[in-house]
Amino acid sequence: MELDEISNRLTAWLVDDRALGDRVTNLRELSGGFSQMMYAFDLHTTGAVQPLVLRANRPEGQSITATDRFAEWEIVESLSAHDEIPIPKALLYDDGHALGVPCFIVEHVDGVTISRHFAAHPTEKTDRVADMLVASLAAIHAVPPADLPTTLDRPTSWEGHIDSLIGKWRKLERTGLEPDPFVRYLANWLEANKPAAAPMRLVHGEVNNDNLLICPDGSMTVVDWEYAHIGDPREDLGWYRTVSASVPPDVMADNIDRVCERYRKISGLDEDVINPTSIAYFGLLAGVSVYDTLIGAPATVELSDQAPVLAAYMSAVLASAQLGWLKVIDALDSNAVTTGMAPS
C-alpha cells in the first residue's frame, strides 16, 4: 500500500469516522519492525499536533510472522493503565475495516533505539543503559497477572512451562524442510540443564536493541509487544543477551554481575534464580519464538518467487543463529558465562 493511500485511509478513520482531529500529515515509514508495518504520523486538532504511530499487519503474502494484532493490542492497552510501565500509550484498535488489515495506534515516543544510540556514541559506557534496561524489565515483570488480559495463556506450573517451550523447539524442528540436528542437540541440552524455578510473570518476549528506546528525558520505552506472554522473567533477560550477540551492543555484557544484583534487588528474587548462567539458559530457551518465525522461511521461498526477500534472508539468519546457540552452550558447559562474557 502506498503512503498516500494509507494517509487517506487514516484520515477517513480518525478524522471522518472518529472525529479525533482535523487532518493527518507527515506520514512516514519507520525503519525497524521486520515483522509488522510501522508508520509515524501527526494528527492535527485545533491548536495542537499529536504525534502518533500506526502498527499494522503486513498484507497477506508479505508477512513473515503470524502474530495476533488484537492480542498485542490487548496487552498494550492493559499496560497503558500502568504509569510505571515504559510503554507507548494505547489509543485505538481496528480489526481491518480502516486499512484492510488489523492495526492499532499508539502515542509516538520521542526516542532513539539502543542500536542507534550507541552507533552515535560508540565510546559511551554501557552501564547507564544497562541500569535503565534492568529497571524497565523489572517493572514489566512486576505487573500482577490479574491486571493482564484474561485471554492471555497462564501456565499452570513453571516445570510445565519450561517443558512446553522445549517441546515447542522439538515440534517446530519437525516442521522444517529438512531435519535440524542443531535444534535437536539444543532441545536435549535444555532438558538436561534446567535451572532453579522462578515465579511466572509478564514477559515481553522480544527484548532487543531495536525494541528499546532511550528518550531525551533519560527514560526508556519498550515497544513491539507481539510476543508478550506469561512466562519466566529470565526469558527477557536471556533473550536480550542472545540476540545482542548478533545485533550489538550487549549492554549487559560488561555489567552482568551488576545487572543480576540490581535485578535481584528490585525483584526480590534470589541468586540461585537470577545469575549469569540461568540468564544464558533462558537466552537459548526463549529463542523458540524467533525460531518459530525462521523455520517456515525456506518453504516460503521455495513455494513462490514472489516470496518476500525477508523470507530468503531468514534462512541465512537461521544458519547464523544456530552457530550462536552452540557457542552459548559451549560457554555454559565450560562455565565461561559466569565471567560475564557475551554469548558470541
Binding site: 522444517g176 524442510l177 518453504a299 521461498v301 521455495e302 518467487d305 518476500p308 526477500v309
Partner: peptide, 18 residues
C-alpha cells in the same frame, strides 16, 4: 548446514526483488 531453500529458489526471489 542448511541446504534449503534451494539456491535457485533464493536467486529467483532476489532477482524479482531487485
Amino acid at each position: 548446514m542448511l541446504s534449503r531453500p534451494s539456491l535457485s529458489s533464493v536467486l529467483n526471489v532476489l532477482s524479482r526483488a531487485t
